[in-house]
Design a binder for these strands. Structure first.
Lengths: 325, 325
DNA sequence: CTGAAAGCGCTAACAG
DNA sequence: CTGTTAGCGCTTTCAG
């Protein structure tokens, strides 16, 4: 090791590099200087080999959902993770899990290539990696569908509270004939947002019967809205479980000759580009996706380093008021 | 090494794992079996330490541009990269380069943590990593602004040809009074798309004077369109250098009491959600961003493995005809 | 074709 | 506080 030209042994250099407290300041300084001078960078492989730590964490993104493209949610989460990790000594290994590569990912993770893993399952709540956490620190993004998967760390958005905020807003602005376009009931966000709806209407003693389910796509939102309108009862406000469906609802509302927000106010959920670029711009519940990535990384790092950590972290949403309600 | 329970030495196991040709089939089979049985996974650190290869590649995303969120382009490129790498033995280290972390990234790259790097500079053409390629295989996404940065590998979208396709389509559909909203002239895509415009109009002997520049944002597109309309000359078709500006143009066109596509046809460039969700849905030039990521990874891997590779790879675009033209 | 031996660069006891 | 001494798990000459 060239840096031993600081007149000390390799062991001391190692101590300095790792910030050991028991090194005479003078010596430490000399070593530091030699390091700068020689532009020395410790070899990660050698270090990992002995310390059994890789200083790397994996981010697993299921390919099926890797609509990474159509879905800004993933992109933001990834961004948040990378942002947090940039402040640490960890490296981000992004891996897209495809059906075809089945065991590859598992072997990679179990092979000791990373110190921990992050898995974002988005809406599906599919936690096929659940058992993984028995052999490796793992943090999930989004709550599991079944509350049974216990003992796993996860960070989630408080979908129920978010939905409540949305519906409360509709009520506060004078709307009384409310309807909702719910998301798939086999996805956590779908069910949580719907329960937020029920809870709020119940709290206000309003009729909560106008419910139609969609699949989170714009087309399904339009269809659901048509069904709602076809019921023949007056509707002056609708809460869609995501922005894409809200945009679909726009179409159906206009087909019926109604205007937004005069005749019917609509509020969505997610705060994505669909709502932002719609006209009128959509009032929606902001989903803190970048924050979610950041928090997932944060929790995982604490976990890896053995610091006390909450099993579940729930992020708060906020209402973004624009022109549709 | 436990797998030596196959009755052979560690050296032989190593040979089998690395597919060495000089191992008796029988022995190889026995070893394979032991590997399966013991669920053995080679330790990457140890392997890297001796082979001086990490089997990892870095993907550098400038934070400034890491609008990863607002910009589906990045997300798609990342996806493409990950997708390609999933078929190889390389791991993807995604790192967001922030101003504040200045030297960190460079040290990481030069510290031998990866076998090569991918840098996506998106629109800016800012290649501050250019010199990096002298010490490490590097592939850039998007061509450099100055043709001087020679000898660097990069893959780019054929923006000029894409613009030509768009304008040709406008002309083929009978439009003769064309205008364009160009992108910033200090970004490669901005200038390339504009030259595609000039070339096409020249080829048809049409007036190419109706040009206004925007900054790729919807607002700038609206402003540019207003200036175009204010010139007082008839316009029946406009080519916007990206979808966001095209959507901005929609606004200005409607303010003028004109309809799309009857009075004025508009075609954009990028094929992002802005155009997809507009009404009418935007006819646009599809930018093969996932392909771009895939190709970048492909080129880099070839480079790392010493296979002959083209210095520049140019990807073709395709026209997506929807309802705006 | 296969085994033995050496060493990649670093950290971690263990002495001094 | 600092130097010495062993390896971490793997690949790779070099013999056999």
């Amino acid at each position: 090791m060239v840096a031993a030209r600081a007149g000390v042994s390799r062991a001391t250099v190692s101590r300095v590099v790792n910030g050991s407290p028991k090194v005479t300041p003078d010596v430490a300084a000399a070593v530091q200087q030699a390091i700068e001078a020689l532009n020395y960078v410790p070899n990660r492989a050698a270090r990992s080999l002995v310390s059994r730590k890789t200083q790397a964490i994996a981010l697993i993104v299921p390919e099926s959902a890797a609509r990474l493209f159509a879905d800004p949610f993933f992109a933001s989460v990834v961004q948040g993770v990378a942002l947090h990790l940039a402040d640490t000594d960890y490296t981000l290994n992004m891996i897209i899990e495809s059906e075809s590569q089945a065991g590859k990912t598992r072997r990679f993770l179990l092979g000791g290539n990373v110190d921990g893993a992050l898995v974002v399952s988005h809406h599906t709540g599919d936690h096929s990696y659940a058992e993984l956490s028995r052999s490796l620190p793992v943090v999930f993004g989004g709550r599991p569908l079944s509350p049974l998967e216990h003992g796993n760390y996860f960070v989630d958005v408080d979908n129920t509270a978010g939905a409540q905020t949305a519906v409360e807003y509709l009520i506060a602005s004078g709307r009384r004939h409310l309807a909702t376009i719910a998301g798939p009931q086999d996805m956590p966000p779908g069910v949580d947002r719907l329960s937020g709806w029920y809870e709020t209407l119940a709290a206000h003693g309003l009729d909560a019967g106008l419910v139609e389910v969609g699949d989170f796509s714009p087309a399904s939102g339009a269809a659901a809205m048509r069904r709602l309108l076809d019921r023949g009862v007056p509707i002056d406000g609708v809460f869609a479980a995501n922005d894409q469906m809200a945009i679909g609802a726009y179409t159906a509302i206009r087909e019926a000759g109604l205007s937004i927000p005069q005749d019917v106010a609509v509020v969505g959920f997610d705060d994505d580009n669909y709502g932002l670029n719609a006209s009128p711009p959509l009032t929606t519940v902001h989903q803190p996706s970048v924050e979610m990535g950041r928090e997932m990384a944060h929790v995982l790092v604490r976990l890896i380093e053995g610091e006390p950590t909450e099993l579940i972290t729930r992020l708060q949403t906020s209402l973004v008021v624009r022109d549709s309600a």
